[in-house]
Simulated assay, not measured.
Amino acid sequence: MKSSPASPPSISAARFAVNMFFALNGIAFANWVVRIPDIKAELKLPPEVLGVSLLGGAIGSLCSMVFGGYLMARFGSKQVTTLAGVLTFLSLMLPGYATNAWTLFAALFFYGAFNGLMDVSMNDQASINEKQHGRSIMSSFHGVFSLGGLIGSLIGGWLSSLHVPVSLHLTSIGLVLVLLVLLSSRWLIPTTPHPEEAHTEPVFIRPAPSLWIIGIMAFCVMLGEGGMADWSTVYLRENIQASETQSAIGYGAFSGLMMLGRFLGDGLINRFGSRTIVGWGGAIMTLGLVLGLTVNTLPAVIVGFACVGLGCSALFPCFLSSASRNPDMRPASAITAVATMAYFGFLVGPPLLGLVAGQVGLRAALFIIAAAGLFILLNHRRVQG
Protein backbone atom coordinates (compact mmCIF):
# COMPACT_ATOMS: atom_id res chain seq x y z
CA MET A 1 0.00 0.00 0.00
CA LYS A 2 1.42 3.36 -1.01
CA SER A 3 1.83 5.95 1.69
CA SER A 4 0.12 9.25 1.07
CA PRO A 5 2.42 12.12 0.25
CA ALA A 6 3.29 14.44 3.10
CA SER A 7 0.93 17.37 3.32
CA PRO A 8 2.46 20.78 2.57
CA PRO A 9 3.26 22.95 5.58
CA SER A 10 0.78 25.57 6.69
CA ILE A 11 1.40 29.14 5.55
CA SER A 12 2.49 30.15 9.06
CA ALA A 13 4.82 27.13 9.41
CA ALA A 14 6.37 27.90 6.04
CA ARG A 15 6.89 31.52 7.06
CA PHE A 16 8.60 30.36 10.24
CA ALA A 17 10.93 28.09 8.28
CA VAL A 18 11.84 30.77 5.73
CA ASN A 19 12.44 33.24 8.56
CA MET A 20 14.74 30.71 10.21
CA PHE A 21 16.86 30.45 7.07
CA PHE A 22 17.13 34.22 6.80
CA ALA A 23 18.02 34.55 10.49
CA LEU A 24 20.63 31.79 10.41
CA ASN A 25 22.20 33.31 7.29
CA GLY A 26 22.47 36.66 9.08
CA ILE A 27 24.00 35.05 12.18
CA ALA A 28 26.62 33.27 10.09
CA PHE A 29 27.56 36.34 8.07
CA ALA A 30 27.89 38.58 11.14
CA ASN A 31 30.14 36.09 12.94
CA TRP A 32 32.47 36.17 9.93
CA VAL A 33 32.36 39.96 9.66
CA VAL A 34 33.32 40.72 13.26
CA ARG A 35 36.42 38.52 12.93
CA ILE A 36 37.71 40.20 9.75
CA PRO A 37 39.98 42.57 11.75
CA ASP A 38 41.46 39.60 13.64
CA ILE A 39 42.14 37.68 10.42
CA LYS A 40 43.62 40.82 8.85
CA ALA A 41 45.95 41.21 11.84
CA GLU A 42 46.88 37.53 12.05
CA LEU A 43 47.73 37.30 8.34
CA LYS A 44 49.31 40.81 8.29
CA LEU A 45 47.28 41.90 5.28
CA PRO A 46 47.34 45.54 4.08
CA PRO A 47 43.95 46.98 3.05
CA GLU A 48 44.43 46.48 -0.69
CA VAL A 49 45.45 42.83 -0.25
CA LEU A 50 42.54 42.16 2.11
CA GLY A 51 40.30 43.69 -0.54
CA VAL A 52 41.52 41.18 -3.11
CA SER A 53 40.96 38.31 -0.67
CA LEU A 54 37.42 39.51 -0.02
CA LEU A 55 36.88 39.40 -3.77
CA GLY A 56 36.83 35.60 -3.46
CA GLY A 57 33.49 35.62 -1.69
CA ALA A 58 31.86 37.86 -4.27
CA ILE A 59 33.20 35.85 -7.21
CA GLY A 60 31.97 32.64 -5.59
CA SER A 61 28.52 34.15 -5.12
CA LEU A 62 28.29 35.24 -8.73
CA CYS A 63 29.46 31.86 -10.02
CA SER A 64 26.73 30.05 -8.11
CA MET A 65 23.89 32.55 -8.42
CA VAL A 66 23.83 32.34 -12.20
CA PHE A 67 22.90 28.67 -11.79
CA GLY A 68 20.17 29.40 -9.26
CA GLY A 69 17.29 29.49 -11.73
CA TYR A 70 18.44 26.29 -13.43
CA LEU A 71 18.86 24.36 -10.17
CA MET A 72 15.50 25.44 -8.77
CA ALA A 73 13.76 24.50 -12.01
CA ARG A 74 15.55 21.15 -12.02
CA PHE A 75 15.21 20.15 -8.35
CA GLY A 76 12.79 22.60 -6.69
CA SER A 77 13.65 25.51 -4.40
CA LYS A 78 13.06 23.56 -1.16
CA GLN A 79 15.76 21.04 -1.99
CA VAL A 80 18.16 23.70 -3.25
CA THR A 81 17.57 25.93 -0.21
CA THR A 82 18.22 23.10 2.24
CA LEU A 83 21.40 21.83 0.58
CA ALA A 84 22.73 25.36 0.05
CA GLY A 85 22.12 26.15 3.72
CA VAL A 86 24.05 23.11 4.90
CA LEU A 87 26.98 23.81 2.58
CA THR A 88 27.02 27.52 3.46
CA PHE A 89 27.41 26.88 7.16
CA LEU A 90 29.97 24.12 6.69
CA SER A 91 32.06 26.45 4.52
CA LEU A 92 31.78 29.21 7.16
CA MET A 93 34.54 27.35 8.99
CA LEU A 94 37.07 27.70 6.16
CA PRO A 95 38.25 31.33 6.60
CA GLY A 96 39.37 30.52 10.14
CA TYR A 97 41.98 28.13 8.76
CA ALA A 98 43.41 30.48 6.12
CA THR A 99 47.19 30.93 6.28
CA ASN A 100 47.69 33.70 3.73
CA ALA A 101 45.81 36.00 1.36
CA TRP A 102 45.32 33.32 -1.31
CA THR A 103 44.00 30.62 1.02
CA LEU A 104 41.65 33.24 2.46
CA PHE A 105 40.53 34.04 -1.10
CA ALA A 106 39.85 30.33 -1.74
CA ALA A 107 38.01 29.88 1.57
CA LEU A 108 35.79 32.87 0.86
CA PHE A 109 35.17 31.66 -2.70
CA PHE A 110 33.53 28.48 -1.39
CA TYR A 111 31.65 30.31 1.37
CA GLY A 112 30.45 32.90 -1.14
CA ALA A 113 29.44 30.27 -3.70
CA PHE A 114 27.20 28.35 -1.32
CA ASN A 115 25.91 31.53 0.33
CA GLY A 116 24.97 33.03 -3.04
CA LEU A 117 22.95 29.96 -3.94
CA MET A 118 21.28 30.03 -0.52
CA ASP A 119 20.46 33.71 -1.02
CA VAL A 120 18.68 33.13 -4.35
CA SER A 121 16.80 30.01 -3.24
CA MET A 122 15.59 31.31 0.12
CA ASN A 123 14.41 34.52 -1.57
CA ASP A 124 12.42 32.34 -3.96
CA GLN A 125 10.86 30.62 -0.94
CA ALA A 126 10.10 34.05 0.52
CA SER A 127 8.41 35.24 -2.69
CA ILE A 128 6.24 32.10 -2.74
CA ASN A 129 5.22 32.63 0.87
CA GLU A 130 4.51 36.30 0.18
CA LYS A 131 2.09 35.28 -2.57
CA GLN A 132 0.46 32.79 -0.17
CA HIS A 133 -0.20 35.65 2.25
CA GLY A 134 -1.52 37.93 -0.49
CA ARG A 135 0.26 41.02 0.86
CA SER A 136 3.73 42.50 1.08
CA ILE A 137 5.91 40.65 3.61
CA MET A 138 9.22 40.41 1.73
CA SER A 139 10.79 43.22 3.75
CA SER A 140 10.08 41.39 7.00
CA PHE A 141 12.11 38.38 5.84
CA HIS A 142 15.09 40.64 5.24
CA GLY A 143 14.42 42.23 8.62
CA VAL A 144 14.87 38.80 10.17
CA PHE A 145 18.19 38.51 8.31
CA SER A 146 19.25 41.77 9.93
CA LEU A 147 18.04 40.52 13.31
CA GLY A 148 20.28 37.52 12.76
CA GLY A 149 23.10 39.91 11.90
CA LEU A 150 22.55 41.81 15.15
CA ILE A 151 22.52 38.58 17.18
CA GLY A 152 25.55 37.28 15.31
CA SER A 153 27.51 40.49 15.86
CA LEU A 154 26.86 40.32 19.61
CA ILE A 155 27.90 36.66 19.75
CA GLY A 156 30.92 37.27 17.56
CA GLY A 157 31.98 40.39 19.45
CA TRP A 158 31.73 38.54 22.76
CA LEU A 159 33.80 35.60 21.51
CA SER A 160 36.33 37.98 19.97
CA SER A 161 36.69 39.86 23.27
CA LEU A 162 37.42 36.51 24.94
CA HIS A 163 40.17 35.96 22.32
CA VAL A 164 38.63 32.70 21.14
CA PRO A 165 40.64 31.53 18.11
CA VAL A 166 38.91 32.39 14.84
CA SER A 167 39.03 28.78 13.65
CA LEU A 168 37.33 27.45 16.80
CA HIS A 169 34.81 30.28 16.76
CA LEU A 170 33.65 29.83 13.15
CA THR A 171 33.71 26.03 13.32
CA SER A 172 31.50 25.96 16.41
CA ILE A 173 29.01 28.45 14.98
CA GLY A 174 28.92 26.64 11.63
CA LEU A 175 28.11 23.24 13.16
CA VAL A 176 25.31 24.65 15.31
CA LEU A 177 23.79 26.40 12.29
CA VAL A 178 23.90 23.22 10.18
CA LEU A 179 21.87 21.43 12.86
CA LEU A 180 19.29 24.25 12.93
CA VAL A 181 19.00 24.21 9.13
CA LEU A 182 18.23 20.50 9.10
CA LEU A 183 15.63 20.90 11.86
CA SER A 184 13.77 23.77 10.18
CA SER A 185 13.96 22.63 6.53
CA ARG A 186 11.01 20.26 6.90
CA TRP A 187 8.62 23.23 6.85
CA LEU A 188 9.97 24.86 3.69
CA ILE A 189 7.49 25.14 0.83
CA PRO A 190 7.70 22.22 -1.61
CA THR A 191 7.77 23.22 -5.27
CA THR A 192 7.32 21.06 -8.33
CA PRO A 193 10.55 20.67 -10.32
CA HIS A 194 10.30 21.44 -14.04
CA PRO A 195 13.23 19.60 -15.67
CA GLU A 196 12.00 20.54 -19.12
CA GLU A 197 12.31 24.23 -18.19
CA ALA A 198 15.70 23.63 -16.62
CA HIS A 199 17.11 22.48 -19.96
CA THR A 200 15.94 25.69 -21.62
CA GLU A 201 17.01 27.95 -18.73
CA PRO A 202 20.10 29.96 -19.77
CA VAL A 203 23.13 29.75 -17.51
CA PHE A 204 23.37 33.52 -17.32
CA ILE A 205 19.89 34.97 -16.97
CA ARG A 206 19.68 38.23 -18.84
CA PRO A 207 17.24 40.62 -17.18
CA ALA A 208 14.25 41.80 -19.15
CA PRO A 209 14.54 45.49 -20.15
CA SER A 210 11.98 46.38 -17.48
CA LEU A 211 14.31 44.95 -14.82
CA TRP A 212 17.51 46.79 -15.68
CA ILE A 213 16.88 49.90 -13.61
CA ILE A 214 15.87 47.75 -10.64
CA GLY A 215 19.03 45.71 -11.03
CA ILE A 216 21.30 48.77 -11.21
CA MET A 217 19.79 50.31 -8.10
CA ALA A 218 20.03 46.95 -6.34
CA PHE A 219 23.71 46.98 -7.33
CA CYS A 220 24.15 50.29 -5.48
CA VAL A 221 22.35 49.04 -2.39
CA MET A 222 24.44 45.90 -2.19
CA LEU A 223 27.63 47.88 -2.76
CA GLY A 224 26.71 49.82 0.37
CA GLU A 225 25.75 46.72 2.35
CA GLY A 226 28.84 44.79 1.29
CA GLY A 227 31.15 47.71 1.97
CA MET A 228 29.73 48.24 5.45
CA ALA A 229 29.85 44.54 6.24
CA ASP A 230 33.49 44.07 5.22
CA TRP A 231 35.04 47.39 6.25
CA SER A 232 33.00 48.89 9.12
CA THR A 233 34.72 46.90 11.87
CA VAL A 234 38.13 47.42 10.26
CA TYR A 235 37.55 51.19 10.13
CA LEU A 236 36.48 51.37 13.76
CA ARG A 237 39.39 49.26 14.98
CA GLU A 238 42.15 50.87 12.92
CA ASN A 239 40.99 54.44 12.24
CA ILE A 240 38.99 55.19 15.40
CA GLN A 241 41.00 52.85 17.69
CA ALA A 242 37.81 51.21 18.97
CA SER A 243 37.92 48.03 21.05
CA GLU A 244 36.72 44.63 19.81
CA THR A 245 33.39 45.15 21.57
CA GLN A 246 32.95 48.71 20.27
CA SER A 247 33.72 47.58 16.73
CA ALA A 248 31.11 44.83 17.00
CA ILE A 249 28.63 47.42 18.30
CA GLY A 250 29.33 49.49 15.17
CA TYR A 251 28.35 46.63 12.88
CA GLY A 252 25.48 45.82 15.28
CA ALA A 253 24.17 49.38 14.85
CA PHE A 254 24.26 48.96 11.10
CA SER A 255 22.39 45.62 11.34
CA GLY A 256 20.03 46.84 14.05
CA LEU A 257 18.81 49.89 12.14
CA MET A 258 18.56 47.80 9.00
CA MET A 259 16.46 45.31 10.94
CA LEU A 260 14.18 48.08 12.23
CA GLY A 261 13.75 49.56 8.76
CA ARG A 262 12.94 46.19 7.24
CA PHE A 263 10.37 45.30 9.87
CA LEU A 264 8.70 48.67 9.29
CA GLY A 265 9.31 48.57 5.55
CA ASP A 266 6.23 46.65 4.42
CA GLY A 267 3.87 49.03 6.20
CA LEU A 268 5.72 52.10 4.95
CA ILE A 269 5.78 50.81 1.37
CA ASN A 270 2.05 50.08 1.49
CA ARG A 271 1.38 53.56 2.88
CA PHE A 272 3.76 55.79 0.94
CA GLY A 273 4.76 53.69 -2.07
CA SER A 274 8.06 52.20 -3.18
CA ARG A 275 9.21 55.33 -5.00
CA THR A 276 9.02 57.49 -1.89
CA ILE A 277 10.71 54.88 0.31
CA VAL A 278 13.57 54.52 -2.17
CA GLY A 279 14.07 58.29 -2.18
CA TRP A 280 14.10 58.46 1.61
CA GLY A 281 16.48 55.53 1.78
CA GLY A 282 19.00 57.11 -0.57
CA ALA A 283 18.87 60.41 1.33
CA ILE A 284 19.36 58.83 4.78
CA MET A 285 22.15 56.59 3.51
CA THR A 286 24.04 59.53 1.95
CA LEU A 287 23.58 62.26 4.55
CA GLY A 288 24.12 60.01 7.55
CA LEU A 289 27.40 58.54 6.32
CA VAL A 290 28.75 61.91 5.12
CA LEU A 291 28.05 63.50 8.51
CA GLY A 292 29.47 60.54 10.42
CA LEU A 293 32.73 60.45 8.46
CA THR A 294 33.07 64.24 8.57
CA VAL A 295 32.78 64.44 12.37
CA ASN A 296 34.78 61.19 12.64
CA THR A 297 34.37 60.39 16.33
CA LEU A 298 33.34 56.96 17.61
CA PRO A 299 29.68 57.95 18.33
CA ALA A 300 29.38 59.89 15.06
CA VAL A 301 30.79 57.07 12.93
CA ILE A 302 28.53 54.48 14.60
CA VAL A 303 25.53 56.74 13.91
CA GLY A 304 26.68 57.13 10.31
CA PHE A 305 26.95 53.36 9.88
CA ALA A 306 23.49 52.98 11.43
CA CYS A 307 22.11 55.47 8.90
CA VAL A 308 23.49 53.36 6.06
CA GLY A 309 21.67 50.36 7.54
CA LEU A 310 18.42 52.29 7.88
CA GLY A 311 18.72 53.80 4.41
CA CYS A 312 19.42 50.47 2.72
CA SER A 313 16.91 48.53 4.78
CA ALA A 314 13.76 48.37 2.66
CA LEU A 315 15.30 48.86 -0.76
CA PHE A 316 16.63 45.44 -1.75
CA PRO A 317 13.51 43.57 -0.53
CA CYS A 318 11.41 46.01 -2.56
CA PHE A 319 13.46 45.31 -5.68
CA LEU A 320 13.13 41.54 -5.22
CA SER A 321 9.38 41.77 -4.75
CA SER A 322 9.11 43.82 -7.94
CA ALA A 323 11.24 41.26 -9.77
CA SER A 324 9.08 38.35 -8.63
CA ARG A 325 5.99 40.07 -10.13
CA ASN A 326 7.61 41.00 -13.43
CA PRO A 327 5.38 39.72 -16.27
CA ASP A 328 8.29 39.24 -18.67
CA MET A 329 10.12 36.55 -16.67
CA ARG A 330 9.47 33.59 -14.41
CA PRO A 331 9.66 34.69 -10.73
CA ALA A 332 12.66 32.47 -9.90
CA SER A 333 14.51 33.69 -13.01
CA ALA A 334 13.67 37.34 -12.37
CA ILE A 335 14.85 37.11 -8.76
CA THR A 336 18.03 35.38 -9.90
CA ALA A 337 18.69 38.07 -12.53
CA VAL A 338 18.23 41.02 -10.14
CA ALA A 339 20.10 39.29 -7.31
CA THR A 340 22.99 38.55 -9.66
CA MET A 341 23.19 42.19 -10.71
CA ALA A 342 23.05 43.21 -7.08
CA TYR A 343 25.88 40.88 -6.19
CA PHE A 344 28.09 42.74 -8.63
CA GLY A 345 27.87 45.39 -5.90
CA PHE A 346 29.36 42.89 -3.49
CA LEU A 347 31.91 42.02 -6.17
CA VAL A 348 32.99 45.59 -6.80
CA GLY A 349 32.39 47.12 -3.36
CA PRO A 350 34.81 45.56 -0.85
CA PRO A 351 37.86 45.23 -3.15
CA LEU A 352 37.24 48.68 -4.63
CA LEU A 353 37.16 50.18 -1.15
CA GLY A 354 40.32 48.27 -0.29
CA LEU A 355 42.16 49.44 -3.39
CA VAL A 356 41.08 53.05 -2.88
CA ALA A 357 41.96 52.82 0.82
CA GLY A 358 45.46 51.68 -0.08
CA GLN A 359 45.93 54.94 -2.01
CA VAL A 360 43.98 57.59 -0.08
CA GLY A 361 42.95 55.92 3.18
CA LEU A 362 39.87 54.01 4.28
CA ARG A 363 38.02 57.09 5.47
CA ALA A 364 38.05 58.63 1.99
CA ALA A 365 37.19 55.28 0.42
CA LEU A 366 33.99 54.95 2.47
CA PHE A 367 32.61 58.06 0.75
CA ILE A 368 32.06 55.78 -2.27
CA ILE A 369 29.15 54.26 -0.32
CA ALA A 370 27.72 57.75 0.18
CA ALA A 371 28.00 58.30 -3.59
CA ALA A 372 26.05 55.07 -4.19
CA GLY A 373 23.30 56.39 -1.92
CA LEU A 374 23.28 59.67 -3.82
CA PHE A 375 22.80 57.78 -7.10
CA ILE A 376 19.77 56.01 -5.61
CA LEU A 377 18.35 59.33 -4.42
CA LEU A 378 18.79 60.97 -7.81
CA ASN A 379 17.13 58.09 -9.64
CA HIS A 380 14.37 57.13 -7.20
CA ARG A 381 11.64 58.48 -9.50
CA ARG A 382 12.45 55.69 -11.96
CA VAL A 383 11.05 53.16 -9.49
CA GLN A 384 7.49 52.06 -10.14
CA GLY A 385 5.00 52.17 -7.27
Results as ranks from 00 to 15, higher is better:
residue 310 L to I: 10
residue 343 Y to W: 06
residue 338 V to E: 01
residue 293 L to N: 03
residue 325 R to Y: 12
residue 328 D to K: 14
residue 307 C to P: 03
residue 289 L to K: 05
residue 295 V to C: 04
residue 336 T to C: 07
residue 311 G to F: 03
residue 331 P to E: 06
residue 300 A to L: 11
residue 317 P to Q: 10
residue 303 V to W: 04
residue 341 M to P: 00
residue 324 S to G: 07
residue 286 T to L: 08
residue 319 F to K: 09
residue 336 T to V: 15
residue 329 M to T: 06
residue 320 L to Y: 08
residue 296 N to R: 05
residue 341 M to R: 03
residue 300 A to S: 15
residue 339 A to P: 02
residue 293 L to V: 03
residue 288 G to L: 04
residue 292 G to N: 07
residue 281 G to K: 03
residue 334 A to V: 08
residue 344 F to I: 10
residue 334 A to Y: 08
residue 311 G to W: 08
residue 299 P to S: 11
residue 304 G to R: 03
residue 325 R to D: 14
residue 312 C to R: 00
residue 279 G to A: 07
residue 332 A to Q: 14
residue 278 V to Q: 02
residue 313 S to Y: 05
residue 334 A to T: 09
residue 299 P to E: 08
residue 323 A to T: 02
residue 329 M to E: 06
residue 322 S to A: 14
residue 339 A to G: 12
residue 330 R to I: 01
residue 339 A to F: 06
residue 302 I to L: 14
residue 296 N to S: 14
residue 319 F to V: 10
residue 299 P to V: 07
residue 320 L to G: 08
residue 328 D to C: 06
residue 323 A to Y: 07
residue 291 L to V: 15
residue 294 T to L: 12
residue 312 C to M: 14
residue 321 S to D: 09
residue 291 L to N: 00
residue 344 F to E: 01
residue 305 F to T: 05
